[in-house]
Amino acid sequence: MKLKQFIPLLMLVFCFALVTSCKSKVSDADIKAKVETAMSPNPTVMVDVKDGVVTLTGDVQTDEDKRNLENAAKAAEPKAIKSIVNNLTVAPIEINTDDADLTAKVVDATKDFPNVKATVADGVITVTGEVEQARVQTLKMSLDALNPKKVDFTGLQVK
């Protein structure tokens, strides 16, 4: 008699267990929504989710951003995400390594600095001579604007 009384209760418990176990399974759409929220400071990042595998695509500024975004995506739904495919790309930085082109441009950039001598080798602009303190930034800005590999000021005297 006692057992019969308990049957409805047992069924209720069973149903409840079934419902909660269904609920704990996070759908791809839910994962996508959470990861997209985590990526929202970087609107160029696209999120795709299939069977719990998250794929990130888009352009980012630095390698550090690429790593950080992957970690942030994982943290958005750590239990439900099986793995992350990080297809984020860091755009290559433009560097002028054409010495002839750089040499010609360096002539224009240093024309107003009569006591400065600048040479170009392997994309590196090496600057020697002397420059007034007030104009060193203008000189550096003019040379950096040429996108060289390096502007070597270590031999430059600042008065």
Binding site: V136, Q137, D144, D152, F153, T154
Partner: peptide, 20 residues
């Protein structure tokens, strides 16, 4: 940005940044 760069590396003598 140039002010901050100049504060970290006075007169840009370290030659370890190219900022365009």
């Amino acid at each position: 940005l140039w002010d901050i760069y100049n504060q970290i590396d006075p007169n840009f003598l370290s030659s370890d940044v190219v900022m365009n």
